[in-house]
Design a binder for these strands. Sequence first.
DNA 1: GCAATTAAGCGTATGGCATACGCAGAAGGA
DNA 2: TCCTTCTGCGTATGCCATACGCTTAATTGC
Lengths: 254, 254
Amino acid sequence: MEPTDDETRPALPPVVAAAWGLRERAPKGPRPGLTLAGIVAAAVALADAEGLAAVSMSRVAKELGAATMALYRYVSAKDELLTLMVDAAYGEPPGPGGTGPQWRTGLAGWAWAERAALQRHPWVVRVPISGPPLTPYSLSWLENGLRCLAGTGLGESEKMSVMLLLTGYVRNDALLTTQIQEASAASGRRIDEIMPEYGQLVARVADPARFPALREVIDAGVLSQEDGPDDEFVFGLDRLLDGVETLIRARTTA
Amino acid sequence: MEPTDDETRPALPPVVAAAWGLRERAPKGPRPGLTLAGIVAAAVALADAEGLAAVSMSRVAKELGAATMALYRYVSAKDELLTLMVDAAYGEPPGPGGTGPQWRTGLAGWAWAERAALQRHPWVVRVPISGPPLTPYSLSWLENGLRCLAGTGLGESEKMSVMLLLTGYVRNDALLTTQIQEASAASGRRIDEIMPEYGQLVARVADPARFPALREVIDAGVLSQEDGPDDEFVFGLDRLLDGVETLIRARTTA
DNA sequence: GCAATTAAGCGTATGGCATACGCAGAAGGA
DNA sequence: TCCTTCTGCGTATGCCATACGCTTAATTGC
């Protein structure tokens, strides 16, 4: 008996197989009354409307008119549902951007697209990473990002590192944004009220002798003026892509 | 009656006042049997030992030999406790680095120090941000970071943006690292087992025709080789500081 | 010394959560 | 017709945050 693939290769995690539609149904037994895609869609809609905290197994089931435990016929644990929700929330990535010298506009467009997706589904960044990306849409996003870096002279390992850095930046920005929004909603103040107040509070609490640099920032009025919601994102993205550009230039001229 | 500070200035949030030690105790009534600092220390120790999920009000109280509701005499809600825990976990920042041309080594040291603090207390990045930093240690970290940028020609607003970008990078790296560790612990596999497996799984699931760039990465063996745990952090930090350097040079030569 | 005041510690109750387990019944194959 | 297999689901367990109000300790004003 020759070795089969099943013995030489690691098995696909069940949730990955499900995401790629590789589950085969046994012919016997009653027809399923629900579908995995329907469960995921209901959970995504619920998270969009009421936040990730509202996504409990019983609540999703109620939304579908089913009992809580019925969901466990489709998903072995809540973690699996979350993984599938994230993949669905990402959806189709933007088309591959230009390669070669256009890498920068391509990657910038990719980053803005991820940001837009995370603004549509802010709860995505609250779902703990369960491992490196293996689900269909996640891999498509990675693929299209990597394509922007073709012809830049970067090594394959460097390309992956750039993508990791970029998606990390976008995700962190989205996490910060939603956390600030939630905190301001919880405190009942609007964000444009909070920032000027913040400057005053820091000034009150931070002794100028011990916090001189901070005091200069406050005196410059940085904390009082409001900037457009995109300004901070643009700044960070520009720095980050500048850093990548420095590396690419070094690889090209070397 | 002339306007007092209390009328013209926003009030300090209670948790901020507590963190700066500004709570005055009424002389009457029984002596407190617990201290805020003691509660925070117990909660930090518990989070270090068993993770943030283990930090429930009843569990912290049990650790202190008190009843659950006793804690609510010191903290108005769990969120307040979490805020104080984070501040305690950061602790003293590294001394201010050199200014002027040494900004880069100073900021790099700052970033490594924050990373070290987050490795000591991985749960910190799981605590939702409740607002801009106002607690003592948080402000000290910000202060010492800003000092590195003195004499670089950056505007005050740009200095703040750089610090936001840098701390975001470090925190995101820490979040990713702990999530991967937790996921690998939950699956019972070691991380150095997972990565080679991951390459094989991607290869199995990703059609080379549809995922050419991804396939190149896999074929280069990027996903199979393990790099030192710091390599990825070094790469991102270098790119990020390169990007800041580009900006500083533009401000200097202009 | 005594009464009034104030805050500390805490017992109880509420409503929600994930999910292990096992049963009833449906669908198809033999 | 009977047997296998799978679906839907009811129940039970042990957690969680925290609102409310009682008892009691420590102090002040008389």
